[in-house]
Simulated assay, not measured.
Amino acid sequence: MHELSIAMGIVKIAESETHKAGASKVECIELEIGTLAGIEFESLDFVWPLAVKDTVLEQAEKRIEVIQGQARCMDCDTLFEVKKFYDSCPVCRSNLKAILKGKELRVKALEVV
């Protein structure tokens, strides 16, 4: 369950940025997580309370923007949605593709006080 280490990394980022801003706590944290990032959203929700206990994020509202996977076929230049890394182009069936979106895992914004 690597979601706990990911949540703890998010806490570390939030604590660092809160300290830089001279604030004491976070009211809201906005995350961007791609469907291809390898994150189980249910697992992240399960470990979140443990990871944020006694931190600046303990009382924060967590908002997650889910970024759908998108790729461009390297053979026929088609843009298409990707649910799994091994999905092939729906037009020409090629497996050669460039992943354009969906691998994101970032703290988008913090509302601090």
Rank of each mutant, 00 (worst) to 15 (best):
M1K: 15
S5I: 09
I6T: 12
I6Y: 04
I6E: 10
A7C: 11
A7L: 15
M8R: 15
G9F: 05
I10K: 00
K12C: 10
I13D: 03
A14I: 03
A14H: 03
S16C: 06
E17F: 13
E17A: 15
T18V: 05
T18P: 00
K20P: 07
K20F: 11
K20W: 07
K20T: 12
A21N: 07
A21L: 08
A21C: 04
A23Q: 04
A23C: 10
A23H: 07
A23G: 13
S24N: 13
S24P: 06
K25T: 14
V26W: 00
E27D: 13
C28D: 10
C28L: 15
I29M: 09
E30A: 13
I33C: 02
I33A: 03
G34L: 02
G34E: 02
T35P: 14
T35I: 07
L36G: 04
L36I: 06
A37S: 12
A37Y: 06
G38V: 00
I39F: 00
E40K: 09
E40T: 12
E40D: 13
S43M: 05
L44R: 01
L44Y: 01
F46A: 11
V47R: 07
V47S: 05
V47Y: 04
P49N: 12
L50I: 15
L50P: 07
A51M: 03
V52M: 00
V52H: 05
K53Y: 09
D54V: 08
D54H: 09
D54C: 02
D54E: 08
V56N: 01
V56A: 02
L57K: 12
L57Y: 06
E58I: 10
E58S: 15
Q59G: 03
Q59R: 09
A60F: 04
A60R: 03
E61S: 06
E61D: 06
K62Y: 11
K62P: 10
R63C: 04
I64Q: 00
E65S: 04
E65D: 07
E65H: 12
V66M: 00
I67L: 02
I67Q: 01
I67H: 00
Q70E: 09
Q70P: 06
A71M: 05
R72N: 10
R72G: 09
M74R: 15
M74T: 14
D75M: 07
D75H: 08
T78W: 00
L79Q: 14
E81P: 06
E81T: 15
E81G: 09
K83D: 09
K84R: 14
K84F: 14
F85M: 14
F85G: 10
Y86F: 15
Y86S: 15
Y86P: 12
Y86N: 14
D87H: 11
S88Y: 06
C89L: 08
C89H: 14
C89E: 09
P90T: 12
V91T: 11
C92W: 05
S94I: 14
K97R: 06
K97I: 11
I99S: 08
L100E: 07
G102R: 05
E104T: 13
V107C: 01
K108P: 05
K108R: 08
K108T: 13
K108C: 03
A109T: 10
L110D: 07
E111P: 00
V112F: 03
V112G: 09
V113C: 11
